[in-house]
């Protein structure tokens, strides 16, 4: 039944140390080499290859991302300069058309003024001519009236 045989046994006992110890040590060392070639090396190769693959991909993706960001910034500056250029051209054209409008307006004004002046002068001359003629006719008429009156006397 319960055979407790701890210490002091001639044969056996819990603390019976014998050649099992060195042989077990040799066995564990051998197991280390076997497991190294059977387990640690192959699995390590696969895992580390995959880790390298993943980290390489991450680095590549990061590079691409930074390149994309750079291109984006580049495009943005290009867009801004194009916008400024367009703004400049539009305002230039506006100025130009404004100037042209003003010039045309002035030209037309001058022309109108000139023809107005000419018309006025003509009207004036005609008026004075008509007045002269009228006063001459009045003179003639008065002379006629005077002559008649004198003759009837």
């Amino acid at each position: 039944m319960l055979a407790f045989n701890f210490f002091g046994a001639t044969e056996g006992g819990l603390f019976d140390i014998n050649a099992t110890l060195p042989l077990m040590a040799i066995q564990v060392v051998a197991l280390t080499y076997i497991l190294n070639s059977l387990f640690f090396k192959p699995v390590g190769n696969v895992v580390e290859k995959r880790e390298k693959f993943v980290s390489n991909n991450i680095i590549e993706a990061k590079n691409k991302l930074s390149e994309v960001k750079k291109l984006e910034a580049d495009l943005l500056t290009q867009l801004q300069s194009a916008r400024a250029e367009a703004q400049r051209i539009v305002s230039e054209a506006e100025n130009e058309s404004d100037k042209l409008y003003k010039e045309a307006l002035e030209l037309a004004n001058n022309e109108a003024n000139a023809s107005k002046e000419k018309a006025r002068l003509e009207i004036e001359s005609q008026t004075s001519a008509a007045r002269d003629q009228l006063s001459k006719q009045a003179d003639d008429l008065s002379e006629l009236i005077v002559n008649r009156l004198i003759l009837e006397k």
């Binding site: 039944m1 055979a3 045989n5 056996g12 019976d16 050649a19 042989l23």
Partner: peptide, 16 residues
């Protein structure tokens, strides 16, 4: 329950 009992193998002079 057997405590401290072993299956001994004798190889030459050594016991396992």
């Amino acid at each position: 329950l057997e405590v401290g009992q072993h299956l001994y193998w004798q190889i030459g002079n050594i016991r396992l």
